[in-house]
Computed example of a mutant assay.
Amino acid sequence: MSSSGLRERKKQKTRWAIQEHALRLFTEQGYDATTVEQIAAAAEISPSTFFRYFATKEDVVLDDEYDPMLGAAVAAAPADLGPIDALRHAVRTTMGNLPEADRDKLLFRSRLQNSVPALRARLLDGLLGNIKLIAAAVAPRIGRPEDDLEVQIMAGACLGAMLPAIFAWVDSNGTLDLAKVVDDSLAKVAKGFTP
Rank of each mutant, 00 (worst) to 15 (best):
A55H: 08
E8S: 15
L127C: 09
G143V: 05
A190P: 02
T56Y: 01
G126I: 03
Q152G: 10
S3F: 09
E100Y: 06
S110D: 14
S110F: 12
A33R: 13
G30A: 08
E28Y: 05
K11C: 04
L62P: 11
P164S: 11
V189Q: 09
I18F: 03
A90L: 07
L119A: 11
S4M: 07
P83R: 06
I84D: 01
S110A: 15
A41T: 14
D64N: 15
L123H: 10
V116S: 09
S2L: 11
A73I: 06
R122Y: 00
D102P: 00
Q19G: 04
V182F: 04
K11M: 11
L127M: 14
P145D: 12
L119R: 06
A121N: 07
A41F: 09
L98N: 02
G160N: 00
E37I: 12
T49V: 15
L149V: 13
P145I: 00
L23V: 04
G174C: 06
A137M: 02
D148Q: 07
A179C: 02
A17I: 02
Q12M: 11
G82E: 13
H89K: 06
D80H: 13
E100W: 02
R120S: 14
A101Y: 03
M154Y: 08
D85L: 10
R88Q: 06
T94F: 04
F50W: 06
K132H: 14
G156K: 07
G82D: 15
R24S: 15
V138P: 08
W169P: 03
E100N: 10
R103E: 13
K191W: 06
L112D: 10
T194Q: 15
I84H: 03
E150W: 12
Y31N: 06
Q152P: 01
S46C: 07
R141P: 12
D63E: 14
P83T: 02
R141F: 09
G5D: 14
T14Y: 01
F50G: 03
F54T: 05
D64G: 15
G192S: 13
A155D: 07
A101F: 10
P47T: 13
I131C: 01
G126Y: 05
V91P: 00
P99K: 09
L163W: 01
T56Q: 05
F108L: 12
D147N: 14
H21Q: 15
V151Y: 06
A86M: 11
V182M: 08
G160W: 03
A161T: 05
L62E: 09
E146K: 09
S2D: 10
L119Y: 08
S110L: 14
F108M: 09
D80I: 01
R7V: 05
T34P: 10
S46M: 07
P164N: 11
R120H: 12
L159W: 10
D125R: 13
G156H: 06
